[in-house]
Write a protein that binds this DNA or RNA. Structure first.
Length: 848
RNA sequence: GCCGGGGUGGCGGAACUGGCAUACGCGGCCGACUUAAAAUCGGCUGCCCGCGAGGGCUUGUGGGUUCGAAUCCCACCCCCGGCACCA
C-alpha cells in the first residue's frame, strides 16, 4: 500500500479508523452494562433489551448475519442515545446436525469444528464493530449452559410438561432421527430433503398443547409483531371450536367420538369415516365379509408416504366396512368406511360425513354413490339442486330437515344441539387444535443429553440437580444407526439408579436444538450464574426483550417454542414475563442475481471480502440502505461502492474542516443551544435548515418501522447539500459554524449504521465520544421555511410553480396564481368554474 | 383453494393523512481536473412528439369516486411467501 504523498488530499481509510475505535471499545468495555445491584447500575435509566437471533456457527458468517446484526446494532445505538440502558448480547446456537454431519464425513469432533467456527464468527463480529456486551457471551454447547437446559427440562418434567410416549412419529431415514412436525416440510425432512416416513417410537415430548390457548390469547399483549407472523402461528395452532359427538356401533358396543365444527349439520350425516390408522379398526372389521379388503387398503395406505397421500390431491379412495353406527341425534344407522382422507393425527381419527355441506365428504359420496341430504338452505328460500353440495360460511341460511333445529341459524342450532347432546350424554362442546405436542428427543450425538435415568424398578428417574450437567460422553463413531450414537458409550450409559441404587441406564437421546434456543435470551441476562439458570430479579428487570430481530424462517418454530418456554417458566415462578419478545422485526432475505445464495450456485457473498475492501461501515450501511429492511434485496457490488463513496464524501469534508481554521467554537455542537442558528442568513441558513430537516426525517423514519433506507437517504441529501454550498458559504464565522454543524450532524445521524466513521468525524469536529451524545433534536423553528413553492394547477394539471410567502393568505395565493402567464395561457377563452386553495401548498383552478 | 406481502424509470427504491410522481443510490451521457487514466468535482438523465418555445402521456389492467388518485372503492391479471383433505 502506497503512502499518500504529502500534497495529496487525505483519503478515507476505513481500515485504520475502524481498527482504532474497535480497540477502544474493547479496551474500555464500552458496551458492557451492569445488572441491577451491580456497580454502575443506574436505576433512573429506562432499560432496553435489544436482541438478534443467535447465530448457528457453521463456516463463517454470511450476509444474512451481516444484515441481522447491522439492523440490531443500529437499534441498540439509537436507543442508547435516547437515554436507555441497553443490553445487547451475543452467543452461539452451537449444538446441532450440521456439525455432526461434518464429523461423520471427516471424523473431526463436532466440538472442535464448532469452536473453530465460533472463533471465525466472533472475529468477524468484532471486525464489524457491533456494540455487543461480550461479558455475557456463551455457546449453547458449553456444559455451563446446557447444565441449565437440563435443569429446566427437569423442571418441566416435574410438572408433567415433559413426558415420554410411544406414538407414530416422523422419521428421517437419511438423518436417522425423528423430527418434530414443524421440521417436516411437504413430507420431507427440513434439513436434508429426504422423504419422511412414519414409525412407532417411544419419544420425549413437551406438552406445548397445554398452552395453545395462551399462545393465541397473548398475541394481544405483544406490542408490535408483524401481522403475517401472528397469522402464521395462529394457523399453525389451528384452534377450532365445535362439538364432540359420540356415534355408537350397537353390534359391538363400541363408542366412536368424533369432532365436528358443524354440529348444526348432524342431521345431514349420511355416513361415517375412520382413518386407516384408527386403533379400533381391526375390531370393527373382524368377522365381516370384506375384512381382507379393508386390511389390504390399510396396508396400502401405510406404504404410501405422507407426501404421496397429499400429492395425489383430493382424489378420494376408501373401502366400506360392513358395519353401521348410530347417529346420536336421530338414531339413524349409517354406513361406515375407512378412507385415508381422514387423518389419525387430527381430532379423533374418525368423522361424521355430511356430504351436502362439506366439499370432501361430497366428493367421497359422489364416488361411492352415497346419500346427499340437505340440512342447510339459503334464508331467502332459494333452492339448492338435489344431489348438489351447498358449502357456505354465510349466516344468511336456515336449518332444514333437522327436527327441532328447523328454522334456526347455524349459530343457534349449534348451541341447541350441543345442549341436547350434553344432556343425553352423547357429546359436548369441544375445542380442537392442529398443534401437536413438541417432539424434542433426537437420536443424535451433538446435542444436550436428556438428564433421565431409566431404572428397571423405579422407572424414569431424574438425574439429581447436584449431578448436573450430564455431560456428553466421548464416542468413536458418530454415524447414525437408527438409535442414538450415545448407546455406544457403555461406561456412560450404565449407571446406578439415583433413587434405588440398582443398575440402570441413562436416556441416550439428545434434545432438539430448538430447546437450547428457547431460553438463551434469559441466560444472557445472568450468564455467569452458577447457582441458577438465571436470577429472577435480573430477568424481571430486563424481560421481555424490547426488540427482537431475525429472519421470518423462524416465524413458527423458534418463536413459538420460545413463547412456550417463557410461559411455562413463568408459571413456575421463575420470571414475571409472559412473553419473551415484545416487539419483533423480521428481516428480508438478501439474494445475489435474484437467487438465494448457496455454495452449489457459487453465488455466496462473503461479508469479510467487502469489509476488507470497503470497511465495515460501508458494508453495514449498504445492507441497511439497499431496500426497506423487512423486504429482501439483491446484493449489488456497485451499491456497496455507492455507499462507500457517500461515506468518503462525509469523511473528506470533515477532514477539510478539521484541517482548516480551528473550529468556530464549542457552541457549534449539534446538541448545544442553537439560538445563533436562527440569525443565520443566505446559504448558511439553507444549510442549517437542511441539517434540521435531516434530523427530523431520520428520526421519524427510524421510529416508523425501521425504515433505514430512507434514514440513510436523508443523510445523503444532507451531505450533498454540504457539498453544494460549502464553497459558497460566507467566509466568516457564521458560514464556518453552519458547515461545522451540518457535518457533525451528518456524522451523528449516520452513526447507528457507520459507528466508526461517525465517531471519527465527531471526535475530530466536536471532540468527545459520539455514543455518549444524546440523539439530536430538530429545532422546530428551523423546520419552517419563510417561503414555499406554490403549485398551480388548471383542471388538476400542473401549470406553474410560484415562490410565495409561507403564510400568504388564500386571497393572495389566488391572485398570484391567476396572474401567472403560464396559467393565463390555459385560462384563455374558458370560464372559471371553481377555485381550490390549499394554503401553503397549491391552487387548482377549474375551468370549462 | 385459503391467508399474507407486492407490482412505480434501464435497475434497487421514495412519495407522511387524497395535493409538485420518480427523493436517495446504481447505471448511462456530457463537462472540469490530468500528458493520460483512476480517483475526485460539477451538469444532464421517465417515455413520446417538436429545431425550438412548448405539448402530450406515464405508478400491472379495466372501470369508478373526487377540483385533484401511486394513494380511496369495484372487477381482473401477474409475482413472492405461508398454509393446504384439519372434519
Amino acid at each position: 500500500m502506497n503512502e499518500p504523498a504529502a500534497d495529496e488530499p487525505a483519503r478515507y481509510d476505513p481500515r485504520s479508523i475502524e481498527r482504532r475505535w474497535q480497540q477502544r471499545w474493547a479496551d474500555e468495555r464500552t458496551w458492557e452494562v451492569p445488572n441491577p445491584g451491580q456497580e454502575g447500575f443506574d436505576d433512573a435509566m429506562p432499560k432496553a433489551y435489544v436482541l438478534e437471533m443467535l447465530p448457528y456457527p457453521s463456516g463463517e458468517p454470511h450476509v444474512g448475519h451481516l444484515k441481522n446484526y447491522s439492523l440490531g446494532d443500529a437499534i441498540a445505538h439509537f436507543r442508547r442515545r435516547h437515554g436507555f440502558q441497553v443490553v445487547h448480547p451475543m452467543g452461539y446456537d452451537a449444538f446441532g446436525l450440521p456439525a455432526e454431519n461434518h464429523a461423520i464425513n471427516t471424523g473431526e469432533h463436532p466440538r472442535d469444528s464448532t469452536w473453530a467456527s465460533i472463533g471465525q464468527f466472533k472475529e468477524q463480529f468484532l471486525s464489524w464493530g457491533i456494540s455487543i456486551d461480550w461479558s455475557r457471551e456463551f455457546a449453547t454447547c458449553e456444559p455451563t449452559y446446557y447444565r441449565w437446559t437440563q435443569w429446566l427440562f427437569l423442571r418441566l418434567f416435574g410438572r408433567g410438561l415433559a413426558y415420554r410416549e410411544n406414538a407414530p412419529v416422523n422419521w428421517c431415514p437419511k438423518d436417522q432421527t425423528v423430527l418434530a412436525n414443524e421440521q417436516v416440510i411437504d413430507g420431507r425432512c427440513e434439513r436434508c430433503g429426504t422423504e419422511v416416513v412414519q414409525r412407532d417410537l417411544e419419544q420425549w415430548y413437551f406438552r406445548i398443547t397445554e398452552y395453545a390457548d395462551q399462545l393465541l390469547d397473548d398475541f394481544s399483549i405483544l406490542e408490535s409483531w408483524p401481522e403475517h407472523v401472528v397469522t402464521m402461528q395462529r394457523n399453525w395452532i389451528g384452534r377450532s371450536e365445535g362439538a364432540r359427538a359420540v356415534f355408537r356401533c350397537e353390534e359391538l358396543g363400541l363408542d366412536f367420538p368424533v369432532f365436528t365444527t358443524r354440529p348444526d349439520t348432524l342431521f345431514g350425516a349420511t355416513f361415517f369415516v375412520m382413518a386407516p390408522e384408527h386403533p379400533d379398526l381391526e375390531r370393527m372389521i373382524e368377522g365381516t365379509g370384506n375384512a381382507e379388503d379393508v386390511r389390504a387398503y390399510v396396508a396400502e395406505a401405510a406404504r404410501r408416504s405422507t407426501s404421496d397421500r397429499e400429492s395425489e390431491g383430493k382424489d378420494k379412495t376408501g373401502v366400506r366396512i360392513e358395519r353401521t353406527v348410530t347417529n346420536p341425534v336421530n338414531g339413524e344407522q349409517i354406513p361406515v368406511f375407512v378412507a385415508d382422507y381422514v387423518l389419525m393425527e387430527y381430532g379423533t381419527g374418525a368423522i361424521m360425513a355430511v356430504p351436502a355441506h362439506d366439499e370432501r365428504d361430497f366428493e367421497f359420496a359422489a364416488k361411492f354413490g352415497l346419500d346427499v341430504r340437505h340440512v342447510v338452505a339459503p334464508a331467502d328460500g332459494s333452492e339448492v339442486g338435489a344431489g348438489e353440495a351447498f358449502v357456505t360460511q354465510s349466516d344468511d341460511v336456515r336449518i332444514i330437515g333437522s327436527g327441532e333445529l328447523d328454522g334456526l341459524t347455524p349459530a343457534e342450532a349449534k348451541s341447541r344441539i350441543v345442549a341436547r347432546l350434553e344432556s343425553e350424554g352423547r357429546g359436548e362442546a369441544a375445542v380442537n387444535y392442529r398443534l401437536r405436542d413438541w417432539l424434542l428427543s433426537r437420536q443424535r450425538y451433538w446435542g444436550c443429553p436428556i438428564p433421565i435415568v431409566h431404572c428397571p424398578s423405579c422407572g424414569m428417574v431424574p438425574v439429581p440437580e447436584d449431578q448436573l450437567p450430564v455431560e456428553l460422553p466421548e464416542i468413536e463413531d458418530y454415524r447414525p444407526k437408527g438409535k442414538s450414537p450415545l448407546e455406544a458409550a457403555t461406561d456412560w450409559v450404565e449407571v446406578d439408579c439415583p433413587s434405588c441404587g440398582a443398575a440402570a441406564r441413562r436416556d441416550t437421546d439428545t434434545m432438539d436444538t430448538f430447546v437450547d434456543s428457547s431460553w438463551y435470551f434469559l441466560r444472557y441476562l445472568d450468564a455467569d450464574n452458577n447457582e441458577a439458570a438465571f436470577d429472577r430479579a435480573i430477568a424481571d428487570y430486563w424481560m421481555p426483550a424490547d426488540q427482537y430481530i431475525g429472519g421470518v424462517e423462524h416465524a413458527i418454530l423458534h418463536l413459538m417454542y420460545a413463547r412456550f418456554f417463557v410461559k411455562a417458566l413463568s408459571d413456575q415462578g421463575m420470571l414475571a414475563a409472559r412473553e419473551p419478545f415484545a416487539n419483533l422485526f423480521t428481516q428480508g432475505m438478501i439474494t445475489r442475481d435474484g437467487a438465494k445464495m448457496s455454495k452449489s450456485k457459487g453465488n455466496v457473498v462473503s461479508p469479510a471480502d467487502y469489509v476488507a475492501r470497503y470497511g465495515a461501515d460501508s458494508a453495514r450501511t449498504y445492507v441497511c440502505f439497499m431496500s426497506p429492511p423487512d423486504r429482501g434485496g439483491d446484493w449489488v457490488d456497485e451499491g456497496v461502492e455507492g455507499v462507500h463513496r457517500f461515506l468518503s464524501r462525509l469523511w473528506r469534508v470533515a477532514d477539510e474542516i478539521a484541517a482548516g481554521a480551528p473550529s468556530a467554537g464549542g457552541d457549534a455542537r449539534a446538541s448545544a443551544d442553537g439560538s445563533w442558528q436562527r440569525d443565520a442568513t443566505g446559504e448558511s441558513l439553507t444549510l442549517l435548515r437542511k441539517a434540521h430537516w435531516a434530523i427530523d426525517k431520520a428520526t421519524r423514519d427510524f421510529q416508523r418501522g425501521f425504515q433505514f433506507n430512507t434514514v440513510i437517504a436523508a443523510v445523503m441529501e444532507l451531505v450533498n447539500e454540504i457539498y453544494r454550498v460549502k464553497d459558497e458559504l460566507p467566509r466568516d464565522e457564521s458560514g464556518a459554524r453552519a458547515l461545522h454543524f451540518a457535518t457533525a450532524t451528518a456524522a451523528s445521524l449516520i452513526f447507528p449504521f457507520a459507528p466508526h466513521l461517525g465517531c471519527e468525524v465527531w471526535s475530530r469536529l466536536e471532540g468527545g465520544d459520539l455514543w455518549t451524545q444524546p440523539w439530536p433534536e430538530a429545532d422546530a423553528e428551523m423546520l419552517v421555511a419563510d417561503t414555499v413553492t406554490l403549485v398551480v394547477q388548471v383542471n388538476g394539471k400542473l401549470r406553474d410553480r410560484i415562490e410565495v410567502g409561507a403564510d400568504a393568505p388564500e386571497q393572495e395565493l389566488l391572485e398570484l396564481a391567476r396572474a401567472s402567464e403560464k396559467v393565463q395561457a390555459h385560462l384563455d377563452g374558458h370560464e372559471i368554474v371553481k377555485e381550490i386553495v390549499v394554503p401553503g401548498k397549491l391552487v387548482n383552478i377549474v375551468v370549462r
